[in-house]
């Protein structure tokens, strides 16, 4: 990118205007693809519809498919890291699910959790016992809510999510735990 900038300024060589350079650091391969101006482009095409700057936050957000989800009262399903620790220490029979990905689990996790990554969560649901209390956590408390909603939709009721995830747990309950 720096080289392209310098070439543009000095007017030397052949810049990447009209070409996209792709590289893959794992394969260490480079590819150079021709690009053409799209005559239907809303900005630079022949009949542009964008004539001035727009609201970009809305533009990038509006693309999100609006799926109607059952309302969930967070106050009812979230527990603080301290409450969570208290329940673990009480010796009560329960299931703890860590819905983060394996590379995150390898950095740190909270026993007796088992790893059920959100990306494959549907595959684990059949193995879970709806009679048992299920506690979910993730990194910051968002993915665990997504997983909790999936279980709720399958009829599970005894569900709790650790607010703020393992990151808040590390700060407030276990300062020796590595944060990432």
């Amino acid at each position: 990118m720096a080289t392209e900038t310098v070439k543009l300024i000095m007017g030397i060589g052949k810049t990447l205007t009209g070409r996209l350079l792709l590289f893959d650091a794992l394969r260490m391969s480079f590819k150079d693809v021709k690009l053409k101006r799209n005559t239907d482009c809303e900005l630079c095409g022949d009949k542009p519809s964008i004539k001035e700057l727009i609201d970009y936050v809305a533009f990038c957000d509006v693309q999100m498919p609006k799926v109607k989800e059952p309302e969930l009262n967070l106050a009812e399903v979230e527990i603080s890291p301290q409450e969570f620790r208290g329940i673990l220490d009480s010796g009560k029979k329960l299931t703890v699910l860590d819905v983060r990905e394996p590379f995150e689990w390898d950095i740190a996790h909270i026993p007796p959790a088992r790893l059920t990554p959100l990306s494959q969560f549907d595959n684990f649901i059949a193995e879970l016992n709806p009679e048992e209390d299920i506690y979910l956590y993730c990194y910051k408390g968002k993915r665990s809510i997504t997983a909790l909603k999936k279980l709720k939709a399958k009829g599970f009721t005894k569900l709790k999510s650790v607010a703020g995830g393992i990151d808040r747990y590390a700060q407030e309950v276990d300062p020796d735990m590595p944060r990432y």
Partner: peptide
Amino acid sequence: QITVFHPHGGGPCYRC
């Protein structure tokens, strides 16, 4: 990915 977007210089833009 790297490229130069410059519709006024004969190339496409990001939206293309």
